[in-house]
Amino acid sequence: MVVIDGHGGYVPLYRVDRSEVAAQHGGRGRGESAVPARDENHVTMACEAADNALARSGVEGGNLGAVVTASVSDPFAEHGIAAHVAARLGATGGVRTTDLRGSRCAATDALATAQEFVAANDAPVLVVGVDVLPADPESDEVAEAGAGAGAVVLRPEADSPAAEFAGVGQETTGFVEHHRRHGEAGETGDAKFESRHGVGEAAPAATERALDGATPAKAVAAAPSDRLAGAALGGVDVEQVSTRDRVGDAGAAAAVLDLAHLLETTEAGETALVVAYGAGGAGAVALETAEGVGTADAKSVATYLDASEETTYAKHLEYREPVEYEGVKTP
């Protein structure tokens, strides 16, 4: 048995009203997107979410067996996130650290990898998704570039877990339409084509393997767009839990952040589904919620969503850029 004992999210304080971006840029403008402060980075945001998850678990940071992170926006080719989160939490020494990236499936891959590590090693694992999507004023995606982090602690068992792992599914297709270089806006192709042949072929297969016949009550889905996220849950009659209207596109982190939000707001005894669709395929995880759901012992995602401060389109762009001082780049 593998359970989730401890869940938590983090959303930066600042928000840009997408209608303000639309006013200067054109396009639609509903909802808001989270803007990281100038002094936040992937590691610091991941640590905020991890602190909340650990506060709700019976695990001390120093007792973690592994830290697995998922991100599609880590700016570094070499530096990583997982080891720095682990060190900050006191999980040094013989601790496995893994940085998963390259596709939004990194989120479900992280959950699957963690589940296997727990089962094989009988040791707790922290999974963190963290992303700060680049905002390029030349791109249609500029208004939706979001930021956020989510974390869960997986253990062999717990006194009062938030959920139990019921199934994990994968569908690897090699299909790529939406893709993106480091630090740049994504290139999006024909949405109808991608809905049918990308997410339409990958997500249902992964979901079916994870659910194994169970009927989910609630689900979260990470995908490059709202439309593709909807398509990822297309074949399932389920209530979708999403922070995207308030956070924007949070990349792979969206799956874990929304899962934390789901576990904070759902009832015990339900089936919950996590789906991530991205470059190369889709992944899915089915969970049975338990008595440890809720918002006790840590700041809730709802608190982060409500405790916000409006900022400008200019800051939305600027805060994601490295700081320049006297011509020297100092991110």
């Binding site: 402060a37 002094d39 936040e40 610091t44 905020e48 570094f76 900050r88 490295p322 100092t330 991110p331």
Partner: peptide
Amino acid sequence: FRELFSDGERP
């Protein structure tokens, strides 16, 4: 927990 500054590119 925040980025205080960077050392080169390293936060």
